[in-house]
Amino acid sequence: MPQLNMVQSLNLALDQNMAADDRVCIMGEDIGVNGGVFRVTQNLLDKYGEKRVMDTPLAECGIVGTAVGMAVYGMRPVAEIQFSGFTMQAFDQIEQNMARLRNRSRNRYPISMVMRAPYGGGIRAVEHHSESREAYWAHTPGLKVVIPSGPRNARALLHASINDPDPVVFYEPKAVYRAFREEVPDEAESMEIGKAEVVREGSDITMIAYGAMMRPTMEAAEDLADLHSIDAEVIDLLTISPMDTETIVESVAKTGRCVIVHEGPRTCGIAAEIIARINEHAFEYLTAPVKRITGYDIHFPYFQVEQHYLPDPDTIVESVKEVVGWE
């Protein structure tokens, strides 16, 4: 099995799906000749031509809106928004049509499309290039929201998203794009959307994270075991919506404690939703209040100070110790 980074594994998923199904087409700004600003779509124009690899005008709303129309016509568009911060330009079409057309047409026009976008901080970028606003789309009925954490699950989840009968917002943790390599099998691989994964088993506390926050969370879990004798169970959420309540509840019922880590702002964030579900389904198992380690309710700070904004292993370790020591 080849060792691939996430950029390469996403490229592989696009390539294999385009080869397997001529309805699959990709579109976005600079994705053709340039291969995407992060090179996720590299070489696909050569292989599949301009009709299926569409360099679009610079208009995010236009990209999503026309992708919706192509999905109505029976194609399976994968639209790239260059940075998730620019999806705000497309909010109109995501909400009005991408999320709603299946319902508005009473199942006549299911919108089988993917909107891909790199999200999150940590790459020393200018304003609007570091946001983590997946909560918007989790709050939007009709969408699914998927966020992989590594090369292998990124490839499998993108495969699943392209083949899903419903519209998927696929956020790629750009801090992870080239951070590490994993073995990714040659043959197409899929993962079920809507399923979280227990990536580390433990008994003292449940730590829930996703995307780029999986790395500091896993690092914290190892430190907690090595230095503080705290045996943490770690859940990689993978799908933000629909959320895998069952896996969360099962784990919290076992450990009785929970912390949740995400980069996005705290208020009405994904952690708030997870806590609500724990409240509804696992309240009687809790031995301590659930704690959130998240971004703050401020605009993502400019890049000389972004490392202080993002949740880091030390902060996560301290928060877990607080929860475990709660009386």
Partner: peptide, 17 residues
């Protein structure tokens, strides 16, 4: 005006096919 982009997308699909 929110339907005009998807309508255009349908036409782009027709053209691509």
């Amino acid at each position: 005006g929110s339907h005009v982009l998807p309508a255009t997308g349908i036409a782009m699909g027709i053209r691509a096919r």
